[in-house]
């Protein structure tokens, strides 16, 4: 099977869907002439023209709302945020317009739109460019929120997102764009709302999503050297969340670590833990432990940033804790 980058997987998904449906267009900052801030849209302007690959002014609220309005009357926009950090300016359009339109119009206006871009911290970008947004977005009824962690998932899930009749927020990762993985030639789709067991074990479940999937797999490799075999449950979609997959794994291993990129309070992990205590209370052999970003804005200095971020070492420590090994 061909091995390609996460960036190319997203690119191929965009291209295939734009070829398939001429209502689909891409809009955002630097998506056209510049070929995308992270080159995801490379070559698309040339292939599809400037009506379907639209470079915008730096005006997130404006072009996000433009996308929603166009979706009300039959187009299928893909709105690229250069990063989700900038999307905060557009949140009124994502939350108050896109997510609520179908409901408050009594079912008359659904919004088939994709909002996508890199999420979370890269390296030493400081506080304003280093934030994971999934818990904010997952809070909102009317949105779907996906966090593909591998090239294979990125392509199949983005294609499904573009075909979905609802607003779908796609949280990618600057640090993921260059990662590589097997992606089959030709078309395939991955349903939204389905988790994926990325590693199968028996001693503990690591439940995670997005960029942290790679961290969990690193931790799993290390733990395996000590004979500890873990399930790595990749949620893939954080809204709607695959509660069954969480329950299935935890009921098997009886122990869980929940790993997320963002902050602790009201984070995705808090929701996962709630599902676990509801569905798996009698199966647990230890309290669930969470691994997350330190409860501070992201610092710049390399050592402080490292200390703030969740990583494999912290995940391993958490697994050992729930297994009462330390």
């Amino acid at each position: 099977m061909p091995v390609i980058t996460y960036r190319d997987a997203l690119h191929d998904a965009l291209r295939e869907e734009m070829q398939r449906d001429d209502r689909v267009f891409l809009i955002g900052e630097e998506v056209g002439v510049y070929n995308g801030a992270y080159k995801v849209s490379k070559g698309l302007l040339e292939e599809f023209g400037e009506m379907r690959v639209v470079d915008t002014p730096i005006t997130e609220l404006g072009f996000a709302g433009l996308g929603v309005g166009s979706a009300m009357v039959g187009l299928r926009p893909i709105v690229e945020f250069m990063t989700w950090n900038f999307a905060l300016l557009a949140l009124d359009q994502v939350v108050n317009a896109a997510a609520k339109m179908l409901y408050m119009s009594g079912g008359q206006y659904n919004i088939p739109i994709v909002f996508r871009g890199p999420n979370g911290a890269a390296l030493q970008l400081g506080a304003q460019h280093s934030q994971a947004w999934e818990s904010w977005l997952a809070h909102i009824p009317g949105l779907k929120v996906i966090t593909p962690g591998t090239p294979y998932d990125a392509k199949g899930m983005l294609k499904s997102a573009i075909r979905d009749e609802n607003p779908v927020c796609v949280l990618e990762g600057e640090m993921l764009y260059n990662t590589r993985g097997e992606v089959p030639d030709g078309e395939y789709l991955i349903p939204l709302g389905k988790a994926d067991l990325k590693r199968e074990g028996e001693h503990c479940s690591i439940i995670t999503n997005g960029k942290m999937v790679l961290v969990a797999l690193q931790a799993a490799d290390q733990l395996a050297k000590d004979g500890i075999r873990v399930d790595v449950v990749d949620l893939r979609t954080v809204r709607p969340m695959d509660v069954e997959a969480i329950g299935e794994s935890v009921k098997k291993t009886n122990r869980a670590v929940v790993l997320e990129e963002g902050w602790e309070i009201a984070g995705i992990g808090a929701q996962v833990v709630d599902y676990i205590q509801r569905d798996c209370f009698d199966y647990l052999d230890a309290p669930v432990v969470r691994v997350h970003q330190a409860d501070v804005p992201m610092p710049y200095a390399k050592n402080l940033e490292k200390a703030a971020k969740p990583d494999a070492a912290k995940t391993i420590a958490a697994v050992r804790k729930v297994m009462y090994l330390d």
Binding site: G62, G65, L66, G69, M72, V73, G74, N96, M101, S105
Partner: peptide, 24 residues
């Protein structure tokens, strides 16, 4: 296309409708 509750929030939507008209 609706009554909208956030002052100014619907103006970009109208711009998008205009974009869609032009697109088509």
């Amino acid at each position: 296309l609706g009554g909208h509750g956030i002052v100014g929030g619907h103006i970009p939507l109208a711009t998008g409708v205009g974009f869609a008209i032009k697109y088509r």
